[in-house]
């Protein structure tokens, strides 16, 4: 059974202009997939379609054989969570309150958060290792710390699929590695799909990658299969070369002058 099956998906912001022009792919449970592609290629649009923010005009998206396009907002929110590119800290909220917002689809009216909600929030804070920041106002956090709060908030939704839009773009290299290690650990028991601009970073942490260009899938497979000089030229229009590191057999992409 596929954790996620995307078939012939077409979607766009205006009716006449489809940004995603027939996207097909399948993802297994426990995978950490990296989506790469130039600016404006449809990476973010794809994530928005997957979490129901953008109506899908054609095709279907199935999770465990269930078409999620017909689900109620609230039911979808229990299955798919999104960490957006830039999340604003809610001023006046502590880290715990911010993470508690992820429990919205589970909370009942007139009732304050229940024991189960508190348990899940505690678990989410521990998963991303920020339990000691719980009572700190979110405004006081650094970018790297706040990114972990954003991930914890999404985890509090208990999603089967976790989507992240450029989770490491605005972080220093120390936090980039920290966040990617965290995601690699979190992929167990769920599926993670994230977009990246740093191709080498994505290649090091994702077992499988998707290369998107003009709303279509150009390549899908292992980083070695996807990040070839030909593919990079076709999509980014940049001359690059794949160099093998003799010591650890990692390959990396190097720009040619």
């Amino acid at each position: 059974m596929k954790a996620l099956e995307v078939k012939d998906v077409m979607a766009g912001y205006v009716d006449e202009q489809m940004i995603l022009q027939g996207v097909n792919f399948e993802v297994n449970m426990g995978e950490f997939i990296g989506i790469v592609g130039p600016n404006g290629s449809g990476k973010t649009t794809l994530l928005r379609a997957l979490c129901g923010l953008l109506p899908v005009k054609h095709g279907f998206i199935k999770m465990n054989e269930e078409n999620i396009l017909n689900l109620e907002h609230n039911e979808l929110a229990k299955k798919v969570a999104l960490v957006p590119q830039l999340m604003e800290p809610v001023s006046g909220f502590t880290v715990r309150e911010m993470v508690m917002l992820g429990r919205t689809p589970y909370m009942r009216r007139f009732s304050f958060e229940g024991d189960e909600d508190r348990e899940v929030v505690k678990w989410a804070l521990e998963e991303v290792k920020i339990e000691d920041l719980a009572e700190i106002p979110v405004n006081n956090l650094s970018g790297g710390e706040f990114q972990r709060v954003a991930i914890a908030r999404a985890l509090a939704q208990e999603p089967k699929i976790l989507l992240l839009d450029e989770p490491i773009s605005h972080l220093d290299i120390r936090y980039q590695v920290k966040i990617l290690r965290l995601l690699r650990k979190l992929r167990k028991q769920r599926t993670i799909i994230a977009t990246f601009h740093d191709l080498n970073m994505a290649a090091r942490f994702c077992k499988r990658m998707i290369l998107v260009h003009k709303g279509m899938l150009v390549a899908m497979g292992t980083p070695e299969e996807v990040l070839t000089a030909a593919n990079i030229w076709k999509t980014y229009r940049v001359k690059a070369e794949v160099q093998k590191n003799i010591r650890n057999k990692n390959s990396r992409l190097v720009l040619l002058p």
Binding site: L53, L82, M87, E88, Q157
Partner: peptide
């Protein structure tokens, strides 16, 4: 408080 899009992803 998280923005309209995020509110929608929360149901």
């Amino acid at each position: 408080l998280l923005g309209e899009d995020m509110a929608q992803t929360l149901g």
